[in-house]
Design a protein around this nucleic acid. Structure first.
Lengths: 205, 205
DNA sequence: GTCTATAGTCCGATAGAC
DNA sequence: GTCTATCGGACTATAGAC
């Protein structure tokens, strides 16, 4: 039991999805092939095809994990905040208050902006899926639409919140396409400005 | 001479680039193959390869034409404006005044936002180039960087202007990736709001 | 669960006729 | 300037051993 190896450190499925993201970031969506993914993950093509029987399944897996990860991270942060400060004190131990729409908005913007530098492949699933088949994006549009409808109810209204989301998206998509020309310093200035703008949507009408 | 046919209506090179953009929009960057482009343009693969000897050359041609088109359209609008109103009157016939930085900024934002609905493939060259080889994007980054450095000198300063450009870019890139969930009405509301924000960068410090 | 081997298709590019 | 024919390689996917 001593020094028991934490193997597998990460499920095989996730390691394969990591490899797929890596390939797209390093070589571009065109070179996302089963061979390349298998090689980058250190398994054979047959091993990859056991977990994802088709390339289509691999792309859907990439998209699904991306959305799950973002939602889970937002939920986790909201929960730890509610549990740690107001929620616990207000509702008693073990109960957490339902987060407000405004908190959900701020936290999501923060997650999107802060996540990227740590994980260069953040959101790359969307680029890969769009490159492979534009019809894949219907799911993403619906997801985005739902968020939009929810956040349009903030005091800032549709235009203000949509504009903030548009700018956040602009930064992330540009980075995904290797199109972003900003220095790290400039980027953090812009991130701060975006978070400020997001906070204004919560309160100012 | 009467009813002389305007043939070729459009140079073969441009028809091939149009076809390449069409393929990417309709099928995704992964399916941008020489076969698909040739078929969509109504020529054989050999005919395509006469004009673009490699796929690389085709992608570079797509990128180059995109930037040329945008720059030319901005210049044309500035010229017609200067010639039609102030420039001509101020400087006399045949002479036009050099457009101000603020005019260049507003006009470029307007071109980017207005062009897209008329030409669904607007900017799709960048998606295709990024998918094929991320290193292609160095040119695009440099181009974008130069604009940024120029427009940061506006009264609005770096952050304000960069945020506007980010939001414009966010809208365009989302549309290129089939990710934009906005109705036409919502889109024109956002476009108006963006143009208003751009105009404020010109004046308000 | 992971591997090798291989089938069948599609890719970019070349050569040469017209 | 555009075509057909074709090569060698890379692609997705299957079959079956271990």
């Amino acid at each position: 039991m001593y020094f028991r190896q934490p193997i597998p450190l990460r499920p095989a499925r996730d390691r394969l999805l990591d490899a797929a993201e890596r390939v797209v970031v390093e070589s571009g969506a065109t070179h996302l092939t089963l061979d390349a993914v298998a090689k980058s993950a250190g398994v054979s093509k047959g091993g990859l095809l056991y977990h994802f029987p088709t390339k289509e399944a691999l792309l859907e897996g990439m998209l699904a994990r991306h959305f799950q990860d973002v939602d889970a991270e937002v939920a986790k942060r909201l929960e730890s905040r509610a549990g740690g400060i107001s929620g616990r004190a207000r509702k008693g131990p073990g109960r957490t208050g339902k987060p407000s729409r405004a908190d959900m908005f701020s936290e999501r913007v923060r997650v999107l902006l802060e996540w990227h530098p740590e994980r260069p492949a953040f959101g790359v699933a969307m680029v890969a899926a769009s490159a492979d088949n534009p019809e894949h994006m219907a799911v993403c549009r619906a997801q985005y639409r739902a968020l939009l409808d929810e956040f349009a109810k903030l005091p800032g209204g549709f235009e203000r919140t949509a504009l903030v989301l548009l700018a956040v998206q602009g930064l992330l998509l540009a980075e995904l396409l290797h199109l972003s020309p900003y220095t790290p310093e400039e980027r953090s200035r812009l991130v701060k400005a975006l978070q400020r703008a997001a906070d204004q949507c919560r309160s100012t009408p």
